[in-house]
Amino acid sequence: MESSRNSLAGVDARHHILSVLVENKSGVLARVSSLFSRRGYNIFSLAVAPTDDDRFSRITIVVDVESAPLEQIIGQLDKLINVVSISELAPEVAIERELILITVAAGAEERGQVIALVGIFEGKIVAVGHDCMTVMLAGTPDKVDDFEKMLRPLGIVELQRTGRVALPKLSHRARLHAVAGGTDQNPADLDRTTPEAG
């Protein structure tokens, strides 16, 4: 998996991000996830939380487009009655972040190394014990990958990542239309030259 990633934004060609606005009702997440399982679509990661409007939640799904064509995944998702709209957030037009919590084996001797790494990556030390430390980092998926890779040789006791969340870049926000559930402007038509601001 590591080797297949390109450097663009931590997402290789087979992984696409869908930002799915759904009704905030019970059972909706189950409807979405069971659709993926019954049609054989693979999910790479999935994050869900209410939006500022409590009638709706946003599910950020990183889908594996090798398991099915993206247009078919979007088409089937859009048939779910509780799905309000779907946007594809191509890496070039999206700001992506992920959070990682790692408890790493670090006694007195290794503690300095961990503190240095946390400093370089601009993470945080959350807790310190005799033989362990818990640290966190929020950043682009690439950066989180690298952080994890650097800490791994020390011995990872426990690790949890949140999965990706994403929003369109400010420069694209006005022009980014939903690919389903709204007008059907193709996100591929969007200008991809603007550098990322954040």
Binding site: P69, E71, Q72, G75, Q76, D78, K79, A180
Partner: peptide, 8 residues
């Protein structure tokens, strides 16, 4: 009438 049938 079902867009998901197109190109399926």
């Amino acid at each position: 009438i079902d867009p998901a049938e197109l190109h399926k």
